[in-house]
Simulated scan of single mutants.
Amino acid sequence: VPATLIGLFIGALSVYKKGLELDQDPEYQKKVAEGLFKDMDAGVAETKMKEVSSKAKLSVAIFLISALAVVLIGTFPELRPHVTNAAGKSMTVGMTQMIEIVMLISAGLMVMFCSADPGKITSSSVFKAGMMGVVTIFGLAWMSDTWIANNLPMIKSEVAEIVGSRPYLFAIAMFIVSALTHSQGATVGAMVPLGIALGIDGHTLVAMYPAVCGYFIIPSTGVLLAGVAFDNTGTTKIGKWVVNHSYIIPGFVATFASVVAGFAIRYIFF
């Protein structure tokens, strides 16, 4: 946790000052001139407080209660119901399914009691970015999982040969696998047992853990796509070569700094 926080701080510093200010950005000024949106600086001066309706407040309350419910359900597994699957085996409902159930219920309540317009929801930038993320992430995840699953024995043998005498290279291997699988969980499940089998001690594996966050390389995660969609100034974008997007530098810096901080903490305190 401290290593990750250190990495995030350094990653944020790496993009604290990046590019031109909006009043000097030709692309942004062109959009303002074309009337695509008002100048943000001028808009701040014109902004007036709007009265928030009781239904809007209720929708926020429903969202916060739902988020709290998800946290409580995740913290206390006994709150999750037991069900019988098709094979007749009793099992606890997984967190993924519980999150989906809670969020769908909250969305239904907002539509029913808060006058939310489904037509406006589907045309919003948030919904469009989310659906784009669903399609691209599922497609890439299926492709990556197929490739990894069919080549996992070869990958493990190659990694074992490379990191046998240089354990620190195992962090690079985890980073590459996470970039291909787009999943920290899948990377941990596939690579950490290999690291243990190679004799890498637990403290070192924990220090390497932030390296499983290489999924930002290919810009197809929901959060990344949403960030691009939300920024109508055009300054947050995906480049011509796909991987040259706005998140590549802070992603590399934050991940690298987190792993370095993890190793520093490991050798100083353990």
Rank of each mutant, 00 (worst) to 15 (best):
residue 3 A to N: 13
residue 5 L to F: 12
residue 19 G to M: 03
residue 25 D to G: 05
residue 26 P to G: 06
residue 31 K to N: 08
residue 39 D to Y: 10
residue 51 E to K: 09
residue 52 V to F: 00
residue 59 S to L: 03
residue 65 I to K: 03
residue 69 A to I: 14
residue 69 A to F: 12
residue 75 T to N: 06
residue 76 F to K: 06
residue 79 L to A: 04
residue 84 T to F: 08
residue 86 A to G: 01
residue 87 A to N: 11
residue 87 A to R: 11
residue 97 Q to L: 13
residue 105 I to H: 01
residue 106 S to N: 03
residue 118 P to Q: 02
residue 118 P to D: 03
residue 122 T to V: 14
residue 124 S to V: 05
residue 125 S to L: 07
residue 126 V to G: 01
residue 128 K to W: 00
residue 128 K to T: 03
residue 133 G to E: 02
residue 134 V to P: 01
residue 134 V to H: 01
residue 134 V to M: 13
residue 137 I to F: 06
residue 166 R to H: 14
residue 168 Y to A: 13
residue 173 A to I: 09
residue 175 F to W: 15
residue 177 V to Y: 07
residue 180 L to E: 07
residue 190 A to K: 08
residue 204 T to S: 13
residue 207 A to N: 09
residue 209 Y to M: 15
residue 210 P to C: 11
residue 210 P to D: 10
residue 212 V to Y: 02
residue 217 I to G: 06
residue 217 I to W: 10
residue 219 P to C: 05
residue 221 T to N: 08
residue 222 G to Q: 11
residue 228 V to N: 04
residue 230 F to C: 10
residue 233 T to D: 11
residue 246 S to P: 00
residue 250 P to A: 14
residue 251 G to L: 13
residue 253 V to N: 08
residue 260 V to C: 07
residue 262 G to N: 07
residue 266 R to Y: 13
